Amino acid sequence: MKAIVIGGGIAGPVAAMALQKSGIDARVFEAYSGTADGVGGALSIAPNGRTALQAIDAGHVVERIGTPMAGMVMQSWTGKRLGEFGSPPELPPMLLVWRAELYRALYDEAVKRGIAFEHGKKLTHIDGDNVRFEDGTTATADVIIGADGIRSTTRRLIDPAAPEPRYAGLLGFGARLADLDGLDDTRDKMHMVFGKQAFFGYQVGKGEGGWFANLPHRTPMSAAQAREVGNAEWLRRLAEVFREDRVPAVELIRRTEPDELVVTGGLEDIPSVPTWHRGNVVLIGDAAHPTSPSSGQGASLAIESAVQLARCLRDLPREQAFQQYERIRRHRVERIIKMAARTNSDKAAGPVARVLRDLLMPTLMRLARPSSFAWQFDHPIDWDARVALPT
């Protein structure tokens, strides 16, 4: 069996490596003419994402580049601690990684394993086993895997009526900093602040740290549109937005140079993608189940799906493999997408809702059962177990 993977971001290289381990030859076709070095801000790899990578002998890839996050401390704009949660102690900790480094590490690992990448291949048509690219070239395979992101061309080709991304009402920003003198070390905890006007997250360690902000904005803006405003102007606006918050947001923003700011544009998701596969084409990652960054699970879910699809194709005929892959993945990923949407609502809360949230959250966090969070993270994948259809 031969496979074509459309998209060389995060899910694509993982899918190719997982397919290779399953005995399936895979090539990756990427629309951009070169590698995506230096693109993107911070994200987390949850324990379940690490577990999925370990299943294909790639756990070391993120261990080399990640900073452990033992927990997330929730705070109000006054600095009051609202609660804390983290992954179960028996699981590996979450890792804070920078997308550019994660991308490069996965890309290099795939190349090291003999995976072929072809750049400048923008998908335009799929006809049976054949795919055609904008440059006029074609490729043929038994399986075509769409790993081409939230605005997936593959998804549109197999279902022209597929829903468009939904704007979450928030714009995303972030930066990586080395100038941390005089700032309190958060050790291995990410601090998440429900500010008076916007949401702010930060982690400060020895020699390096970073921050991100989610700014409520009535109208959607693409990353390109947001960048037209100018990084210096966004830093000025963000400093003003967090001016009254009794946390180090303004200080971290002040230490950020304009060329260090990452502007990601509007946060988006799709609550449910109706069609995951058609014929010999199947979707993974953000092409199948795009969740907003507020989930903290986007990359990890993409990695999970890539590995599970490879297992299904290893053990079942193609159509049955696609059906079983969707059966074992859809409920889990859509549940996380729904949770992230609620988090986005909390981040954009108005004055009354903000007061109620800050009053109720400490009690709710104390009463929450560990299983309320653990199910996301405790998701083992037994690579050697045979995938079987339900009886």
Rank of each mutant, 00 (worst) to 15 (best):
H331N: 15
F212C: 12
A223P: 06
H125I: 14
V273Y: 01
F194E: 04
R218C: 04
F322C: 13
F212T: 05
R151E: 03
S33E: 15
A52Q: 10
Q20I: 10
E326M: 02
S76T: 03
V307T: 12
V73N: 13
L82Q: 08
M365R: 03
A147Q: 06
P165T: 02
L170F: 00
A288H: 04
V307M: 15
I56G: 12
I145L: 07
A198S: 15
P93N: 13
K2P: 10
E90A: 09
R330Y: 01
F117E: 07
V97I: 06
E164H: 01
D127G: 09
A55H: 13
N231G: 05
A116K: 09
G298E: 05
R314K: 09
A223Q: 03
A249E: 12
L359A: 09
R187H: 08
S292H: 00
R81F: 11
F85C: 06
I126H: 04
E304W: 02
C312P: 10
H379K: 13
A302V: 00
R151G: 11
G128V: 05
F373P: 13
A70C: 12
K112Q: 08
R255D: 08
H277P: 12
P216N: 04
T67G: 06
A226G: 01
T78D: 03
V193C: 13
H125R: 07
V131F: 03
V39R: 14
D179M: 08
V143S: 04
T275I: 07
D37S: 05
R237K: 13
N280F: 00
T219A: 01
E268P: 10
R64E: 11
E101G: 10
V131I: 05
K338D: 06
R99S: 02
M365A: 05
T186N: 05
L180R: 11
G120W: 05
D382C: 06
L96K: 08
R254K: 04
Y107Q: 07
D148G: 06
G285H: 08
G23W: 10
A310K: 00
K189Y: 15
S33M: 14
T124K: 05
V97Q: 13
G285Q: 07
Y103K: 07
G79M: 08
V250M: 14
L95D: 11
D25Y: 08
L360D: 12
T363L: 06
A52V: 09
L43H: 03
H125N: 07
V355R: 09
K347D: 09
L170N: 03
E63T: 05
P92R: 06
A374V: 05
R99Y: 01
P13K: 02
E30I: 14
K2S: 06
R156E: 07
A239K: 04
F200P: 15
R64I: 08
R166L: 01
T51A: 09
A100P: 14
E260I: 01
L359F: 05
A249Q: 15
Q225W: 00
A70P: 15
R278V: 05
G169K: 00
